Simulated scan of single mutants.
Amino acid sequence: MEQLTIGDYTLTWLRGGVTHLDGGAMFGVVPKPLWSKKYPVNEKNQIELRSDPILIQGHGKTMLMEAGLGNDRFTEKQKRNFGITEESLVEEDLQKLGLTTADIDEVLMTHMHYDHAAGLVKWKDGREVPAFENAVIYTSALEWEEMKNPNIRSASTYWKQNWKPVEHKVKTFEEERSPTPGIVQRKTGGHSKGMSIIMIEQGEDMVIHMADNMGTHAHQKVLWVMAYDDYPMDSIAMKQTYMDLGYNNEAWYTFYHDYKYRAVQFTSNGTIQNQVLRQA
């Protein structure tokens, strides 16, 4: 399992499942001859997308960023349509670290789309129950409300089975919250109306988890946003702000979906100076 240490915190990537989605949808109006130079594509025009939660340990807490795809959360038709080739191995990876699902204190959700939230729920004795039995789940109040009352577009990605069994475990925040010193979960909007990012600051070191506002390393360019973004102009504005902030501070950017990189650190001019590669 790949790790990144930032000050008092250790980040560990867990295997949460794999989808293969249409490359054109993932890169919006960007022409295929451009994006395909930066991200591999198969004969079906699909690109590989991980759904790998990031374990954060430090200051006496054990937290997850995102929840993965879970297990037995999709029909056979959905598996085919979403190109799901692997389901969650989060429990196995936690065991390798000497942990169980009961050790997770908090799950920090950037947003509640199915590929981030399906792993919040598991089957036990024929019932849907919280996958992380002792964890409090945090998402923005705006995201929570939109998820419960989706519009005609977002109804296809906010699924009741991913939130109803855990609603008693959820707490929301308005603008931002700090679960531990140096970590901030902040509502920014963009990919979804209530979208959040997660930032870690330790001395001169900074981590920015943009989630689907920069879904892969190939989405680094400000104008390269997904067709899946509900508010693309908000995504662009948000990227302008946090790419500029990250470049100026030579921040690490962490990825949930990227097939190749777990994290990259950019220089002030936007080139990669350090990286954490996913091990096959």
Rank of each mutant, 00 (worst) to 15 (best):
Y242E: 05
T157I: 14
G16S: 13
M109A: 02
K260V: 00
R278M: 12
H209V: 11
N134H: 14
N213G: 04
K61V: 03
G190F: 01
L99E: 10
G16M: 14
H116Q: 15
H111N: 14
T216N: 10
Y253D: 01
V121P: 02
P181C: 09
Q265Y: 04
E204D: 06
D205S: 02
P53E: 03
W13V: 13
H219K: 13
K260W: 01
H113T: 15
K164R: 14
G28C: 03
G194N: 08
H219M: 08
T180R: 06
I137G: 05
F74G: 08
E174I: 02
L97Q: 09
P181Q: 05
S196M: 06
P53C: 13
S154T: 11
M1C: 03
V41A: 09
G28V: 09
E92V: 09
E167T: 13
D244K: 13
S154W: 04
M226Y: 01
G60V: 03
K44A: 03
E106R: 14
A155V: 15
S178H: 11
T75E: 07
T180W: 01
K37G: 06
T172N: 08
A141I: 04
D230T: 15
I56W: 00
F27M: 02
G270Y: 09
R127I: 01
W13E: 12
T172I: 11
E43G: 04
M199K: 10
H217Y: 03
N269S: 07
Q240M: 12
M210T: 09
Q161E: 12
E91H: 14
L34C: 04
N71P: 09
M233D: 01
V222I: 12
T85L: 06
I198N: 02
K96N: 14
D105E: 02
A251L: 06
W252K: 11
E146S: 10
S196T: 11
N81R: 11
P53F: 05
D230V: 02
F255N: 07
G70T: 06
K32Y: 07
W123F: 02
L94M: 10
L11I: 00
T139I: 15
D72H: 12
E106Y: 14
D52A: 06
T85Y: 02
S235C: 09
M243E: 02
D93K: 14
H191P: 03
Q46W: 07
S154K: 12
Q240E: 05
A155Y: 06
F173I: 08
Q279I: 15
K164V: 07
F255H: 07
G70M: 08
M65A: 13
Q78N: 09
G98S: 03
K124M: 10
I47Q: 05
V276P: 00
E146T: 10
T267D: 13
T100C: 04
L69I: 15
T139N: 11
L64Y: 04
T180A: 08
T271N: 12
N151H: 14
A135D: 01
F266L: 05
S36W: 00
P53H: 12
P40M: 04
